[in-house]
Measured scan of single mutants.
Amino acid sequence: AEKTGIVNVSSSLNAREGASTSSKVIGSLSGNTKVTIVGEEGAFYKIEYKGSHGYVAKEYIKDIKDE
């Protein structure tokens, strides 16, 4: 099942092309942005936001229960 997560940073969080800190940054998400978690790979979540996919470090995403 898809989960919703909240970007848990004070400034912004980089979204990357792949599940690695050396992957190209494809965008950034500001704190408290809601994202859909579609998968996980190592220390990263694969997320969907406004129709695009990217990878973000798990430690900066807070899971919330689907309402």
Rank of each mutant, 00 (worst) to 15 (best):
K58D: 00
G39Q: 03
N32W: 13
V25C: 08
I37V: 05
T36M: 09
S22D: 14
E41P: 00
Y55H: 00
R16Y: 15
G18Y: 14
S10Y: 10
N32A: 08
V38L: 12
G54R: 04
N32V: 05
G54N: 01
E41N: 06
K24S: 08
G18H: 14
V56Y: 01
Y45N: 01
K46S: 02
K62M: 11
S52V: 13
G5A: 04
Y60A: 08
S23K: 03
N8E: 07
S30W: 11
I6R: 08
I26Q: 01
S10W: 08
K3S: 05
I61L: 06
L29S: 00
S10N: 09
K46L: 10
E40A: 05
K3Y: 11
A19M: 05
E40H: 05
K46A: 04
I26F: 04
A43E: 14
G31Y: 13
K46R: 09
G18W: 12
I37W: 01
T21G: 08
K24Y: 05
A43N: 12
L13Q: 02
V25N: 04
K3A: 05
G51P: 00
V9K: 08
G51T: 05
E2N: 15
Y60F: 13
G42A: 04
V9Q: 06
S10K: 13
Y45T: 02
S23H: 07
Y45D: 01
I64L: 09
V56M: 01
T4A: 06
K65Q: 12
N8A: 13
V56R: 00
K34W: 09
K3E: 02
K34L: 11
V25Y: 05
Y45L: 04
G42T: 01
G18D: 09
N14W: 13
G27T: 07
V9W: 06
K3D: 03
G42M: 03
S52C: 13
S52M: 14
G31L: 09
D66G: 09
T33M: 09
I61H: 04
T4C: 13
G27A: 08
A57Y: 11
G42S: 05
A57G: 08
Y49W: 10
R16G: 02
G42F: 03
K3W: 15
V7S: 03
A15V: 15
A57H: 08
I47H: 01
A1L: 14
A43C: 12
N32Q: 10
I61D: 00
G31K: 14
E59L: 09
S23M: 06
A43S: 10
K24Q: 07
S11G: 15
N14R: 10
S52F: 13
N8T: 11
G51W: 05
Y49H: 02
S22P: 03
Y45Q: 01
I37L: 03
T4R: 09
S23V: 03
T36G: 03
G27R: 04
Y49S: 01
D66Q: 11
I26Y: 03
E40T: 06
E59H: 08
K34Y: 09
A1R: 13
G27Q: 04
V56I: 08
G5V: 04
V35I: 08
I26A: 01
R16C: 08
K62E: 07
A19K: 05
K34P: 06
D66Y: 14
N14C: 15
L29E: 00
G31D: 10
V38Y: 06
G39R: 01
K50R: 09
A15T: 09
I37G: 00
A19D: 02
G31E: 08
S22N: 11
K34E: 06
K65C: 11
G39E: 04
G42Y: 04
K58E: 00
G42I: 01
S28G: 05
T33C: 11
Y55A: 00
S23Q: 03
N14Q: 14
I6Q: 05
K3C: 14
V7Q: 02
V56S: 00
T36S: 08
E59G: 06
S12H: 12
S52K: 12
A15H: 02
A57M: 13
S10E: 11
I64H: 05
S28T: 14
G54K: 03
T21Q: 10
T36W: 13
V7A: 04
E59K: 13
K46V: 10
K65G: 08
I26K: 03
A1K: 13
E2V: 15
L13K: 02
K24P: 11
T33P: 02
I64D: 05
I61V: 07
E67N: 12
A19E: 03
L13M: 06
Y49I: 07
G18M: 11
E59Q: 11
A19S: 07
K65N: 10
Y49M: 06
A15N: 02
G42Q: 03
S20T: 10
T33N: 04
G27L: 12
A57T: 04
D63M: 15
K3V: 08
V38D: 01
E48H: 10
